[in-house]
Nucleic acid binder design. Structure first.
Lengths: 153, 153
DNA sequence: CCTTGACCTGAAGTTTGGTTGAGGTTTTAA
DNA sequence: TTAAAACCTCAACCAAACTTCAGGTCAAGG
């Protein structure tokens, strides 16, 4: 044995340990807990003690974030997982399928934009009022409400 | 008086007119001017008067924003355009080609993520320490001087 | 025992891309 | 002429996702 002859298996983790193993900053871990994405119990001295599952949850959070899902939504998704136990394969498949769908939508939106850009690079479209880039009926979910646009010259 | 016939060609535009024609809020126009993305002159009463080109520039700004380019970068790009005259086709091609490149990179990053997600939906990867989604690099904690996940996005 | 180092809390600061509001001036149309 | 509509500035605020800081507690080692 290297270190731990008497170390209990599946020890709980301090916040510093979670930080080191997950790559998150301690402040981010606090933040996620405050936002309800992860939980901890407290020891006698009021220090956080995390179940090891927190590492898996953090991994899920990071994946979801990379797909562009906001934390509030990730939190809601995590709340559908069984409490205090590891997510099952089925849990993970459910979440990841949903996120994959959103990711696909995002990719498709960007791809459409790219195609338009492609088209318009050639034609110098921006000088024309009917350019599809200038009048994006289509792509408004990426950002902003912007419900105007038309206006005869 | 009845508007249509004697209107001077290429009149300058008030901020309200720019707002109506561009679909931006007046506050956003002020904001863009403060950030150096557009310019205006002032009339005798200190009101903004915009060259009509501002509409084309705003169109460019909106396209760039949709590709995910931050305003500061858009501002820098716009500063490479000829001042006080309309961007030429060549100008537009230069900018849009650059932005298209970035857009492509973004799409590719997201596509790679999707492929990983695809792969990992099947295998329940997140329970394994060597999952590519979970982190190509960190896994065994112990000392990651560069605790970054794959690619940032 | 005593000193670090790890941890605690709550508040405030950061960045991006704006919006909202107060208080005052200018333009316009009746 | 006069009232409304449009405009002005500056400051404060919003949301997301965190970080930093101040001031205090807890735990571990020499």
């Amino acid at each position: 044995m290297t270190t731990s002859s008497s170390r209990p298996i599946a020890r709980e983790l301090s916040v510093g340990e979670v930080a080191k193993r997950s790559g998150l900053a301690i402040s981010a871990i606090h933040f996620y807990e405050a936002k309800g994405l992860i939980t901890s119990r407290r020891n006698a001295g009021n220090q956080r003690r995390f179940h090891r599952d927190v590492l898996r949850r953090v991994a899920i959070i990071k994946v979801a974030q990379r797909t562009g899902i906001p934390l509030a939504e990730i939190r809601d998704a995590l709340h559908t997982l069984p409490e205090n136990k590891s997510p099952t394969l089925a849990d993970w498949q459910r979440l990841s399928a949903c996120w994959k769908h959103k990711l696909n939508e995002r990719i498709e939106r960007l791809s459409r934009l790219r195609d338009q850009l492609d088209h318009c690079i050639g034609c110098g479209c921006l000088s024309m009022d009917d350019c599809p880039l200038r009048n994006p009926r289509d792509t408004l979910s990426e950002q902003g409400p912007g419900p105007r646009l038309l206006d005869p010259d």
